[in-house]
Simulated assay, not measured.
Amino acid sequence: MTGPPRVLGWFAAYGAGLLGIPEPRFQPQEHDEEDKTMSQQWALTWNVREGTEAEVIRLFERSGRPDHVVRDDEGNVVGLLKRTSVFMRRNTVVRVIEFDGEFLDVAKHMGRQREVRDLERQLDPYLEQERDMSTPEKTAAFFASASMRCVLSRRHDEELSDA
């Protein structure tokens, strides 16, 4: 299997301009067999109350999908959400996001997404520590405080540098 048609990636990055939506500020990345560039990856971590793990898993399994096109406050395309993964170990939750663009733009975008707000509101009663995600700015502040930056991500076909 060769993966999704490349035209879909092109449309996600450039198609907005064809529809009269401002062009993206970020530089879209081609992802083919020769591509050596990597998107950014960040993780968010928090704890839920012990004994609530099964309910938290159920909430994630039933959650919706946010818009993958990241827009700034003026509606300009500034990034692309590529993947979200959630891991749990005991009562610790780690949500990993892969994206093109700037982290704070992505955090604000996530705060504007109904699917994300709904899930976060449903998770609130299970959290060990309260958080305020009532506005995009407060969501971005939570993302900044709970974030883990990726310090290493290697592809199987990357050359190791001597640095």
Results as ranks from 00 to 15, higher is better:
76 N>G: 14
32 D>V: 09
144 A>V: 12
114 R>K: 13
41 Q>C: 13
147 S>N: 13
94 V>M: 13
85 S>P: 02
20 G>N: 04
103 F>N: 00
113 Q>S: 08
101 G>L: 01
163 A>R: 13
33 E>Q: 10
118 D>E: 11
36 K>G: 11
121 R>F: 04
84 T>G: 08
18 L>N: 05
51 G>I: 06
20 G>P: 03
138 K>R: 14
85 S>G: 06
120 E>Y: 08
38 M>G: 07
148 M>L: 14
8 L>N: 11
63 S>A: 15
53 E>A: 01
30 E>A: 10
135 T>L: 10
29 Q>H: 06
42 W>K: 06
82 K>S: 03
118 D>Q: 09
23 E>M: 11
82 K>Q: 09
3 G>F: 08
41 Q>G: 10
68 H>V: 10
29 Q>A: 06
159 E>A: 10
150 C>V: 04
17 G>C: 03
139 T>C: 09
26 F>E: 00
139 T>D: 09
84 T>Q: 11
61 E>V: 02
118 D>K: 07
91 N>Q: 11
78 V>K: 02
125 P>H: 06
6 R>C: 02
40 Q>T: 06
78 V>E: 06
71 R>M: 05
113 Q>K: 07
89 R>L: 13
41 Q>V: 14
82 K>N: 07
105 D>W: 04
11 F>Q: 14
24 P>C: 02
139 T>V: 11
140 A>F: 07
61 E>Q: 11
35 D>Q: 14
87 F>Q: 05
88 M>I: 01
3 G>A: 07
40 Q>W: 10
159 E>D: 08
118 D>H: 04
70 V>S: 01
55 E>C: 00
25 R>V: 13
90 R>D: 15
156 H>N: 08
47 N>W: 08
56 V>P: 02
125 P>Q: 04
141 A>K: 11
128 E>D: 13
56 V>H: 01
44 L>R: 12
79 G>Q: 02
148 M>K: 03
152 L>H: 11
150 C>A: 04
84 T>P: 01
67 D>Y: 03
90 R>H: 13
155 R>W: 10
71 R>L: 10
136 P>A: 05
127 L>K: 04
67 D>P: 00
56 V>T: 05
11 F>G: 12
152 L>G: 07
76 N>P: 09
108 K>E: 15
2 T>E: 15
110 M>D: 05
160 L>N: 06
